[in-house]
Amino acid sequence: MKKFQIISIFIIIAVSLIAVGNVLAQEPVPTPSADEVNSIAGNMFCPVCENIPLDVCGTEACEMWREEIADLLILGFSEDEIYEYFYERHGDMVLATPPLKGFNWLMYIIPGVAMIIGTVFLFRYLKNTTKQTAAEEIEEKPSEIKDPYLDKLEEELKKRN
């Protein structure tokens, strides 16, 4: 917590220093294009309009956030640093893909586990049932085939070939 405070104070100071520096230097800083901002904002959500990505959300809050992204780009922040910046301030909910840390690992692990369990079950079922059938092959009567249509069709096709 303490560390976080120090870091964030540092960032604030750094940001304001750079901002002041820019103003003083009067250097023409290239304004980032809307597309650059949107490509970053597209991977973010703002807390005001839930479930609408930041790049297409029309609320005033989202507009401000996009402005902030543009400001950060001017300050030379990289894409990842911008995500980090917003993450530090607003938490997991701003990122469209929750960061891979802590509890969030669970999010990625569980679908994998479920898939593996499902696959194992499926294959064991298929293996068991087809193996058993092979053993009982003789018992099964041909009359059990319940698709007269397809049989007829297959027969016809055989005749033709």
């Binding site: 991977n43 959500f45 839930e50 479930n51 990505p53 938490g91 997991d92 909910m93 701003v94 990122l95 469209a96 893909t97 929750p98 509890f103 969030n104 999010m107």
Partner: peptide, 8 residues
């Protein structure tokens, strides 16, 4: 932690 999960 409230998470948002985007379409991607």
């Amino acid at each position: 932690a409230r998470v948002s999960i985007g379409p991607e």
